[in-house]
């Protein structure tokens, strides 16, 4: 394969991993805990900016960029700190939700927070170089190899490792008792509170962990693209991820993976390499139209997505509850727990 093709494929692979990481984080918040986080992309941005300022070195050493901090820390540190910073930001934003707002009302509030963040970072140029953004962010594995093709594949492997760890971690959470509590929160918040679940704590937890995962995705992405600006994280990106989840399957383990491969990667990244036709804005606007159509069509014809969330039925608990064997449809056990039908 020519090196141009290799670069293209490696790039797609890396983007795919980044989108899978992000979609898994959003799945935890939205698919499992039922929080419509319309500000999700700001946590990816927080991770990306953190990695940027922690690896760029002192301001002034790399062109005329102005930014805060300006450290040059060795490889894994920026990644880990990015996760922590984005997670803390998530807890901070989650605190807004302590006032229990109706889910779609909260979504609007979060959308506004996303816009505020973009406005702030764009206009407060001292933070992260304003609208121009950070560039020339150093590559973490530059010393390993001098061949750029080999570098891309090493990077893809690194992104893959982070991706697998994140997907596994989310899977563990989904299957654990904690995941059951989160689903109870999603299905009926009042009932979850009534059986003694700490609703506010669970929400903060899910905002924190989801935010941290988004931060990791931003960190992996920015070390590869080496540049990050407000235009990289417009609020529309959040909706691309939501579309991915809806297509793949909300709340399931593999749904986000499939959705991330189908929606953002094939659609946005694939068409980037199409031959240009029409006005320069035509192809991007057609992509957005397609995303809008996919959203409406999937929500109408297949709202559970391609890989639906598995129904969780626990036979022993079911019998202990003294249920009627002949009842035609089994209620999701989580829902029954939430409704207090199953003794715990």
């Amino acid at each position: 394969m020519s090196s141009a093709w290799q670069f293209y494929i490696a790039t797609l692979v890396i983007y795919a991993f980044v989108y899978i990481i992000a979609a898994s984080g959003l799945n935890l918040q939205f698919g499992v805990a039922g929080i419509y986080n319309f500000a999700f992309i700001i946590f990816q941005a927080a991770g990306a900016y953190t990695t940027g300022v922690l690896s760029l070195g002192r301001p002034g050493s790399t062109g005329l960029q102005t930014y805060i901090l300006g450290l040059h820390l060795p490889f894994p540190v920026p990644l880990l700190v990015s996760g922590v910073v984005a997670g803390l930001l998530g807890v901070g934003v989650g605190a807004v939700t302590i006032r229990r707002l109706r889910a779609d009302y909260l979504a609007i509030a979060l959308l506004v927070i996303s816009l505020i963040a973009t406005d702030l970072v764009t206009n407060a140029t001292g933070l992260f170089n304003g609208a121009t953004g950070l560039s020339l962010i150093p590559q973490p594995f530059a010393s390993v190899t001098s061949s750029s093709t080999a570098y891309d594949w090493i990077y893809a492997a690194y992104a893959g490792v982070v991706c697998i760890l994140v997907v596994l971690a989310v899977r563990v959470i989904i299957r654990s008792p904690l995941g059951r509590c989160l689903r109870a929160l999603r299905e009926n918040e009042n009932a979850a509170a009534a059986i003694g679940k700490n609703v506010a704590g669970l929400r903060l937890f899910v905002f924190g962990v989801g935010g941290a995962i988004a931060g990791l995705s931003g960190s992996v992405l920015v070390s590869f693209t080496q540049a990050w600006a407000p235009s990289s994280w417009l609020y529309g990106e959040t909706f691309v991820l939501f579309t991915a989840l809806i297509v793949g399957g909300v709340g399931s383990n593999l749904g986000p993976v499939l959705g991330a491969l189908l929606v953002p990667v094939v659609l946005a990244e694939g068409s980037r390499y199409l031959p240009a036709f029409g006005a320069p804005t035509l192809v991007p606007s057609l992509e957005w139209i397609l995303i809008g159509v996919i959203l409406v069509v999937f929500l109408w014809f297949r709202p559970t997505g391609l890989i639906p969330e598995p129904r969780r039925v626990y036979p022993r608990a079911w019998r202990a509850g003294g249920a009627d064997e002949n009842r035609p449809n089994l209620v999701d056990d989580d829902q029954r727990v939430a409704q207090g039908l199953v003794a715990r």
Partner: peptide, 20 residues
């Protein structure tokens, strides 16, 4: 969620239809 996402999808189609 379905309702708010549907309105969003419709908005995207109109806005980017105009841009197209």
């Amino acid at each position: 969620f379905t309702l708010i996402m549907v309105t969003l999808g419709v908005g995207l189609v109109i806005q980017y239809g105009i841009e197209a």
